[in-house]
Amino acid sequence: MSEHEQRTPVQLNTVSADDPRLQPAARRPELVEKVIAITFLLGIVLIAGFGAAYWVNAAPWTLGATFGGGLTLMGVGLIAWGKYLMPRGPFVEERHTMASTDEERNAFAAAIVERGGGVIKRRKFLGGLLGAGMGIFGVVAAFPLVRSLGPLPKGSLFHTDWAKGTYLVDITGRRVHQDDLAIGSIVTVYPEGLENTDNGQAVDQTVLIRISNENFVTQKGRETWGPSGYLAYSKLCTHLGCPVGLYEQQLQLLVCPCHQSMFDVTNGCIPNFGPAPRPLPQLPLQFDSAGYLQSQSDFNQPVGPGFWERS
């Protein structure tokens, strides 16, 4: 209690050299000094150990343990030094008001309003021209800066590379034959020739599921889209465009692992759980004369997440 009472804060520049506030905070400085010295020594050993570990190309955790341990010990020692062996204070510093004197304020405001303002007011036409020039420059300068960054979206968000007669191929470029998939099987397919391109992977990716042996109708008006039980849906989730990569075979649901939207494969992939607002677009399928799968046309809707221009 008494110790606390004498610790009235003083200003640093008024304090005499023998003031108790300039004394170390520790009751037994010699002991603290020894402890800090040991901490520093251990820290030095570990930091040197980091050098050695680096030299012999030791495991990453050895590097981190020596480096981190050494730094931590040096830091702890330094904090203890500051806390226990340096002037304990407390000291006080006066604040100065932010605000200037009234004269200074007025002079400043006068400089802006009268000197500058007067000049501009008198030459309104010149000021207007300057402003217009700067404005036009701003707009014009934005063209190369912004417009060059990328192409305009135009129709690219509406269409994929699927068209009439495009062959469905897997990631290795192999066409899918009528007999390839067993019932309940699933494969990711791409338009032939685009299986290794960015657009083929990111935009055209399609899941092909075989659901039965018979022609399968998922919605009214899609009578010919599922020959021999083959159904193809866009693999881009209509929520945020993650690949709808999980197939729950028993419930015949396609599941998006990102935000758990679920789509009913047998019913035109209408979402029945999660944040996805629209069904996955379906790709109408047909067989060529040899029994290889082709698309009849592009998807019935724009694929992927929603955007303003989409109707």
């Binding site: 981190g64 981190g68 341990g69 730094l71 040096m74 830091g75 904090i79």
Partner: peptide, 14 residues
């Protein structure tokens, strides 16, 4: 600063 960096290094290690 040393302690913060040291703690981060230990996290990076372990």
């Amino acid at each position: 600063m040393f302690v913060v960096s040291g703690a981060i290094a230990l996290l990076g290690a372990f």
